[in-house]
Design a protein around this nucleic acid. Sequence first.
RNA 1: GCCCCCGUAGCUCAGCUGGAUAGAGCAGCGGAUUUCUAAUCCGCCGGUCGCAGGUUCGAAUCCUGCCGGGGGUACCA
Length: 588
Amino acid sequence: MHLLRLVQNAVRKALAGMTDDVEPYAAMVKATQDAKHGDYQANAAMSLAKALGKNPRDVAQQIAERLDLGDWLDKPEVAGPGFINLRLRGEWLAKQLRTTARDERLGVGAAENPGVYVVDFSGPNVAKPMHVGHLRSTIIGDSLCRLLRFLGHTVVGDNHLGDWGTQFGMLLWGYKNILDKDAFAKDAVRELARVYVEVRRKTQGTEEDDKAGDPIAEASRQETAKLHAGDPENVRLWKEFMPHCLEELQPIYQRLDVRFDHQLGESFYNPMLAEVVRDLEAKGIARKSEGAVAIFYGEDAPPSLIQKRDGGFTYTTTDLATIKHRMDTWKPTALLYVVDSRQALHFSNLFDAAKRWGYNGVALEHIKFGSVLGPDGKAIKTRDGGAVELGSLLDEAFTEARKVVVAAINQSPTTDSTVAFSESEIDQIAEAVGIGAVKYADLSQNRTSDYIFRWSKMLAMNGNTGAYMQYAYARNCSILRKAGVSIERFRTDPPAIHLDSPHERALALQILRFEEALAAAVADYQPSGITTYLWDLAKTYSGFFQNCSVLKAESPELRESRLLLCDLTARVIQLCLGLLGIRTVERM
RNA sequence: GCCCCCGUAGCUCAGCUGGAUAGAGCAGCGGAUUUCUAAUCCGCCGGUCGCAGGUUCGAAUCCUGCCGGGGGUACCA
């Protein structure tokens, strides 16, 4: 039930015959900001009147009169300079809601034109611990995959691992020089992680600026070069390390509940790079310059190198090979890259090059996002200036959430705790709330802006937070449990809905806006569209809950009706959180 | 130098394909309510939407310039 589209269609029909160029005017329909202006407003009259040289209120009146109200619209009102205020009929809303209740998908239709989306996200460098830098890509990418999939598209989630980079040089040097063989035999993953951290520590400070001076950094670089040159020993070790490196990532992905369809890293494309360069040169897209091979974009724009003077390839080469492979393999309609905004120039160039290479029939999108900042507003760091590891961040999320959960349970005498919370249940709740808080805080942010990472904000029980939504869900579950009704019956033979109070009506409308919200979210690849909707739903529900007694409703019919509203609200919340990759708990 | 992004309430952020008095949470102040989970709700306070022009019936939203902050910019990825 895409309400907005429904209203737009009606307005479009009414406009037909009034102008030749209906579409832009039909698009001027939007949800009202204030309920006193109805549910939707059509704003076409003002600009149309201008174009026709007529009085805007007259034009508005004319559109209003031509509207086919059917059984679902109240008589429209013309207001102000020429706004047309539209209000949906209560009986119709009630009817739609019963249909929604019977639907697994809660009224959301499958995409009319299903596409194939390859989503490139997460992309950590293996052989070193994941850190906050990977958080946003992982969370946002996962959510977009879930959303696209739910809307009926084919989704290929691909983790483009950094598995061929300089970190392996450090690991190789470490393996050869400081490995604890017993520890490696016992727990290879752990020992390799230790070795990496140790080598990194030894070269610390020389990492960014003055690498050349450090002997270990230099030795590591040579190990990398040998690996890339095909040195049998290093290639053998690389192959031995890789499974351990992948295994090391798993606990994080498991906790985040993130899965990939493929994990084709840089190494996978390595054998294809020479051919890519040859082809681009042959087609005149790339040419030799200053000893390297480069693709140029314009007079004063810097080029991107696809082969360095020393013969090595760059990430542009790999990315081009990746595009080719993805196009050949999955024939996608869109390639989405969920990557930090700072790579905007790279992607803009990459897409330009890909199009010239012949990949025109695919949407190439850089789904960019801002940085995670510390409380000081600067890039987030640990106390000693290092990168915050994702593992410890998630541990902290659990610990912080557990404090909040325990405090809440203890101070809330009426918590639905006829059965006491066991320690393990509290752990489970804390994990769901903690991880959910991190995800929700991230996803509720406008993707493109930076945000400041704060536990107090993320775990707040008021406001637009994951915990609040999870709580709203749990509260609903509690009511339905107490009511002792059959949820099954609600979903197969739902009771009649009564929308007598404005709070009930508002809630009904908000539930039916679900599809509209998802459409808006997917249109610009913004998961925050879902959280904004959720937050509105939660506020509307809160108004309902405050003013309409459910269990003690005035009549059995009203009780049933309100219980169904509760069940629907809970289902929408659960589904939305699910699309964000956030778990719900039955009670908390 | 050139390019990109950002600048909205004390703080953190929405809103940005132009629309009716600019919204939320936190903080501050004041209330409700012995609750269907108070992990609640309501009200008040608080903004020249960085500045200056322009386009428009209408601009936080579009355009230009300036100021301030961040990022990127041929051999890392």
